[in-house]
């Protein structure tokens, strides 16, 4: 599939279309694929609310777009490309494993994440649907920061030079982000759609949700440990 999209990119004569394709190709690279699979697991853990799952996929992509556009903006305003790309590309891939492990442990309540002064405030906002989307947004922001070799070259090496030299430069990182988020949006949509088709079977979905949450947390921990071992040992 990566070959197919790379062929399309080779034939593309429109820079904006190329940015979207570049994002899509990056999403199929080893590192972004890992984070996207994890994101799909995270977003689909509350499967009873299909609107929530689908919107979660969109908001996760919005989070990615925020990061990519923000970095592009800094670079367009004259920040040193070498400094920023060097730091993010070299340390991003080292952070992704511990980050996934930590999120998984927090989700399982093995590592409690409660601050006394914020506990009332946080429990209040957790009960409100609109604030729950912040989790997806932040996940997109953080995962986009986790540049690895492949995504680092695609973004800093190919996308940013085109963005800086083009009049509609800021649209490029936005389209790139949409490209990297397409698999998550598609799978979130499929999960939401599939759930509505078998709605009758999930009458006691609340119980299933608890287990889904645990499975997703273990998925995070497993992938996190894999990345740590793969990178560090």
């Amino acid at each position: 599939m990566q070959e197919y999209f790379t062929n399309l990119l080779d034939q593309s004569a429109f820079p904006l279309w190329s940015a979207l394709l570049l994002g899509l190709i990056t999403s199929l690279g080893p590192c972004t694929l890992t984070t996207n699979i994890t994101a799909i697991g995270f977003i689909s853990r509350e499967v009873s609310d299909k609107k929530h799952v689908f919107l979660g996929g969109l908001i996760y992509t919005l989070g990615r777009a925020f990061t990519y556009t923000f970095i592009a903006l800094i670079l367009m305003f004259g920040a040193n490309v070498l400094n920023i790309s060097g730091v993010l590309s070299r340390y991003g891939e080292k952070l992704i494993g511990p980050l996934l492990l930590m999120i998984g442990l927090v989700m399982l309540d093995v590592v409690p994440l409660s601050f006394p002064s914020f506990s009332r405030w946080s429990s209040k906002i957790e009960n409100q649907q609109k604030y729950r989307y912040w989790q997806h947004f932040l996940l997109g922001v953080v995962f986009a920061l986790a540049f690895c070799s492949y995504s680092g070259v695609m973004y800093f090496g190919i996308l940013i030079p085109i963005s800086i030299s083009h009049p509609s430069g800021l649209l490029f990182p936005l389209l790139f982000a949409i490209g990297t988020g397409i698999p998550v949006i598609v799978f979130a949509g499929l999960i939401a759609f599939a759930y509505s088709g078998v709605n009758q079977w999930f009458v006691r979905i609340r119980n299933i949700e608890l287990w889904l949450r645990r499975i997703v947390a273990v998925l995070f921990i497993g992938i996190g440990i894999y990345r740590i071992v793969d990178f560090w040992f």
């Binding site: 990566q2 790379t6 190709i25 690279g29 070498l82 400094n83 790309s85 060097g86 590309s89 070299r90 070799s149 492949y150 680092g152 070259v153 695609m154 800093f156 090496g157 190919i158």
Partner: peptide
Amino acid sequence: VFKSVILLKDDQKNDLTNDLFLYIL
């Protein structure tokens, strides 16, 4: 600043990083 492949000859430099990373797999 990061993983790169460059060709050098006298004062010429050719950075192959983008092409190699994009196409190698």
